[in-house]
């Protein structure tokens, strides 16, 4: 399975729906997508990972890179994920402290800091 990516706008936020496997081979595609969004002025991102079935540290690095970029513009990057096997890597690395993680896209869209 490859990586699938789609984006849509919801108010002032952009939802990026990711599916498949985010690893050393596919992560550059996601990185490119996040960089494109930030360069074109989308600073509030919601990354929906409910259909991701594999995420490794390369993918984590891309999400961290995205977070750094939106933060440089006072933006936000929220994740949507309820799958234990994906959440585990965030927990081990302590990155649950830096990413707001939501159970649904609606919850992420409604969230404010």
């Amino acid at each position: 399975m490859d990586l699938s990516l789609s984006t849509r706008t919801e108010g002032d936020r952009t939802v990026v729906t990711v599916g498949g496997e985010i690893d050393v081979y596919t992560a550059p595609k996601l990185r490119e997508q996040l960089i494109d969004l930030v360069s074109s002025g989308n600073y509030h991102l919601v990354v929906d990972m409910e259909n991701v079935d594999f995420l490794d540290s390369t993918g984590l690095g891309v999400l961290v890179g995205g977070l750094k970029r939106v933060r440089a513009h006072e933006g936000s990057l929220r994740l949507v994920c309820t799958q234990e096997r994906i959440l585990k890597i965030f927990r081990i690395t302590g990155l649950t402290k830096v990413f707001p993680i939501h159970a649904t896209v609606d919850e992420a869209l409604a969230a404010t800091d």
Binding site: R31, G65, L67, K68, R69, A72, H73, L95, K97
Partner: peptide, 19 residues
Amino acid sequence: SPEQLSAPDAGGNDVVPDL
């Protein structure tokens, strides 16, 4: 340090790894 890892960075240089 998660906070340090994710410090704001406009990311001009893509060669620098994020982790």
